[in-house]
Write a protein that binds this DNA or RNA. Structure first.
Length: 788
RNA sequence: GGGCGCUUAGCUCAGUUGGCUAGAGCGACUGGUUUACACCCAGUAGGUCAUAGGUUCGAGUCCUAUAGCGCCCACCA
């Protein structure tokens, strides 16, 4: 036997096992295996270096507990890793980091910076996942900007275009004036704000005055008309008449419109191009109104804004309100709470600007998406509600074009002469239309004058294809087996984006589901229960924690919240994890130092205490397995902890010490059998949660008797028939335990060390002579007496 | 405005189909060098399970209202 180290140096040992797993390729997906496959659609994290915090640790660990469990259950686990690096999040990150002035940098230079940051960022993640012990197959990685992802995203575009699910049109769309791009409904965030409701008076052609109320007075120059409810007695007679706008002087018509709520404000509303969705709808209902737009893509009023041209929205608001006040048209202002939509990436107020964009039809198929969503297995179940609410509230088709640089380009050219759309052959993908030329010119007019589409895809256009991208990393005959995938783990905030869009794609491309089970994790919160955010600066740096307590300890913390629940940061829980690591190590060492060479190969005749222990072990295995199956890793951990701390170490190890150090060879052998199996099973049960210490113990003590290279490739424990202990006997043993507790309490309360032998102890429980003997030996009491 | 969730010991949280004399860890206090472990062990104190009703032989657990907190959703300009 080689000499065993006295203490477990987690820093040195964890690094040792990281290297070991890499060298032995323990987590490699075996493409030739006959075992059943378990595939995971791993969330590709956004690459931006400052972002890593304990929230990420929590959600990735939680998914990984399940993955490791499945691997030990005998599945051929496919667990790739992606990095989401294209799109706005990265652009914003780069802009901020380098304080970029977009007018002073070329598109090419900018993209190069993005690529550089992307590389740095993904390396950061990689390092963190590695130190955490995330068991992905690192030979199966992708990034959402790489060639493969571009190819699949562009293929998706072509396929959906062919199927009539994609269209291009000019219409008012959600627009971010800061990022200067169109965005999608899913990119919106609602913000409740206090603002002012402004009452503005106009002059009607018959000489009457009419007052309407608005929160967006700055759009006055773009007012297209005023509406009142057609049955509103106060205003009925004004319908069809003209009103003169203050400051502007232009005349607009007064309409009857049932959507106007007579109870809000004055019961009269003005409609502009565009203050919001209701304005757009209003204009749809009134095609006779010739609309024009005063807001440019940069968020400033254009020349149609008259004297307000060149002003930003907020500046114009102030100016116009001041002018209205001076002119007397602003008759009243009142405080109001309303909801404003901002772009979730930058917090800028969203505007509606009429531009030409590409869309995927999603509104028309809401019912289908609801049905598909219901077919998924949601863990926890209630998360389906978020999906359902979202799909039901869909109002706009998915705008997939972004007027940005760093993204997957549209595989589209236009004929400069006849404006026909020219698409590449799918075998030529990926293409960059700004650099590549279509093989043939325009098929319609034969012109060879070509203009490229310069927009790039919304980042979700690519991310929604991760199940497809993932399977392309393995050989082709496995593709069918990997789709749909078994598991999609993800956070709840991106149900409306990542999850929903993936379902959309899968349905439109294949009429199927992209995965079977969905595992939704909650938020990581700071120790005060607040969301972790840049603004609060309340990040906990995972590297520091791993350095200080070890990866196992940090992972242990991640078991603390039930699936889907938010979890506070709590360093005490990490410490508890570390204590568990130490305790496991010591318990294992005890077993092997004392009985390591005395373990019988077959099941011996078990004594009462052994049966009691093994029976409890059976129960623990049974329950922990069921919990893991149900994605309830936290309840599984509770079960395992209880068994380990309370039953195994606090009682059983104390029970067998006299046997282990005693002369009775037979009895020692039976104890050895029990201890060996208990430790081996425990270590396996803990393996998904704490892969390092369990590997250490496995390699140190069990490797010789086992053929598998790593504990993580060994079999998940099962219950053992021979360990069954009738419930009645189990109850009798509880009686013995209660006497033991009484002895312990007696000693403690009298300041006597538990190790010191006492002369006698009297109990009112009835005990057999074997039971008495057991208590006497294990608790160091010379004589137990039963009171009448 | 609609929906969902939470409210259990000083703190962080378990409590699965109603049976608990309500649990754990941390913290507090007391005692202890048990031939694994002081990163430990034993013990003590501490809760009318947010509030008010109801169903039931029995409710932390089910129902109804109320309050506080959190989240998701929502075009009332």
């Amino acid at each position: 036997m080689n000499e065993k180290p006295k203490t477990y140096d987690f820093k040195e040992r964890e690094e040792h096992w990281r290297k070991f797993w890499e060298e032995k390729d323990v987590y490699r997906f075996d493409e030739d295996s006959k075992k059943p496959i378990y595939s995971v659609d791993t969330p590709p994290p956004y690459v931006s270096a400052e972002h890593l915090h304990t929230g990420h640790i929590m959600s990735y660990s939680q998914a990984e507990f399940i993955v490791r469990f499945k691997r030990m259950q005998g599945f051929n686990v496919y667990y790739p890793m992606g990095f989401d690096d294209n799109g706005l999040p990265t652009e914003r990150f780069v802009e901020q980091k380098y304080e970029i002035d977009k007018s002073k940098i070329t598109r090419k230079e900018f993209v190069e910076l993005c690529l550089k940051e992307t590389k740095l960022g993904s390396q950061n993640y990689r390092d963190l996942w590695r130190s955490l012990g995330i068991s992905v197959d690192w030979s199966k990685t992708y990034s959402t900007i790489n060639k493969l992802s571009q190819k699949i995203a562009q293929w998706s575009f072509l396929d959906l275009y062919k199927k009539g699910k994609i269209y291009k049109t000019k219409m008012p769309t959600l627009w971010c004036v800061h990022c200067q791009t169109a965005i999608a409904q899913a990119d919106l965030e609602a913000e409740e704000r206090k603002s002012k409701l402004n009452y503005i008076e106009v002059e009607v052609e018959n000489g009457e005055k009419l007052t309407f109320a608005t929160t967006r007075p700055e759009l006055l120059p773009a007012c297209m008309g005023i509406s009142v409810h057609p049955d509103d007695k106060r205003y009925k007679r004004l319908i069809g008449k003209k009103a003169k706008l203050p400051l502007i002087g232009r005349e607009v018509l007064i309409f009857g419109d049932e959507t106007v709520d007579p109870k809000f404000g004055t019961g009269a509303a003005y409609f502009c191009s565009y203050g919001g969705a209701e304005d757009i709808e209003w204009l749809h209902r009134h095609p006779e109104v010739e609309s024009f737009h005063i807001l440019g893509p940069n968020g400033r009023f254009n020349e149609l804004g008259g004297k307000y041209a060149g002003l930003k929205v907020s500046e114009a608001r102030e100016k116009i309100l001041a002018d209205l006040k001076t002119s007397g048209a602003l008759v009243k202002q009142e405080e109001i709470e309303n909801v404003t939509y901002v772009h979730e990436r930058c917090g800028t107020d969203v505007e509606y600007i009429s531009t030409e964009q590409w869309f995927i039809k999603i509104v028309e198929a809401k019912d289908e998406f609801l049905k598909r969503g219901k077919e998924l297995n949601w863990f926890p179940k209630k998360m389906y509600r978020i999906y359902e609410d979202w799909v039901k509230s869909l109002k706009w088709d998915w705008c997939i074009s972004r007027q940005r640089y760093y993204g997957v380009p549209f595989p589209v050219w236009y004929c400069a002469d006849c404006r026909e759309i020219i698409l590449p052959d799918k075998n030529d993908l990926p293409v960059d239309p700004t650099a590549d030329k279509p093989k043939k010119g325009c098929l319609k007019c034969k012109s060879s004058k070509i203009k490229p589409e310069t927009d790039v895809f919304d980042t979700w256009m690519t991310s929604s294809l991760t199940p497809l991208i993932g399977l392309r990393l393995v050989k082709e005959d496995l593709w069918e087996k990997l789709y749909p995938e078994n598991l999609r783990p993800q956070a709840f905030e991106i149900i409306r984006t990542w999850l929903f869009y993936t379902v959309v794609k899968s349905y439109y491309h294949f009429k199927g589901l992209p995965f079977k089970d969905v595992m939704i994790s909650g938020h990581g919160l700071d120790e005060k229960g607040r969301k972790i955010s840049k603004r609060l600066g309340n990040y906990i740096i995972p590297d520091r924690i791993i350095e200080q307590f070890g990866a196992d300890a940090l992972r242990y913390w991640a078991t603390g919240a039930k699936l889907g629940g938010n979890m506070r940061w709590n360093e005490d829980e990490v410490k508890k994890g570390k204590r568990t690591v130490t305790k496991l190590w010591n318990a294992a060492r005890f077993v092997f130092d004392t009985v390591g060479s005395a373990i019988p190969a077959t099941v011996p005749a078990l004594e009462e205490a052994d049966l009691w222990l093994l029976h409890n072990l059976n129960k623990t295995v049974h329950e922990a397995t069921a919990y893991f199956e149900a994605y309830e890793y936290s309840l599984a951990r509770n079960e395992i902890d209880d068994f380990f701390w309370k039953i195994f170490t606090d009682y059983y190890i104390e029970f067998v010490k006299h046997r282990v150090y005693g002369e009775d060879k037979k009895s020692k052998e039976v104890a050895a059998y029990t201890l060996y199996n208990a430790i081996l099973t425990l270590v396996k049960l803990y393996a998904p949660i704490m892969p390092f210490i369990t590997e250490e113990i496995y390699q140190e003590f069990f490797k010789e008797r086992s053929k598998t290279e790593s504990i993580h490739l060994s079999n998940w424990p099962e219950t053992v028939k021979e360990w069954h202990y009738p419930e009645k006997k189990h109850r009798e043993f509880q009686k013995v335990l209660s006497v033991i507790d009484a002895v312990r309490a007696y000693k403690t309360q009298n300041g006597i060390s538990l190790g010191k032998e006492i002369e006698g102890f009297t109990t009112n429980k009835k005990l057999t002579s074997e039971e008495k003997e057991f208590i006497q030996k294990t608790q160091r009491v010379k004589r137990i007496t039963c009171a009448k």
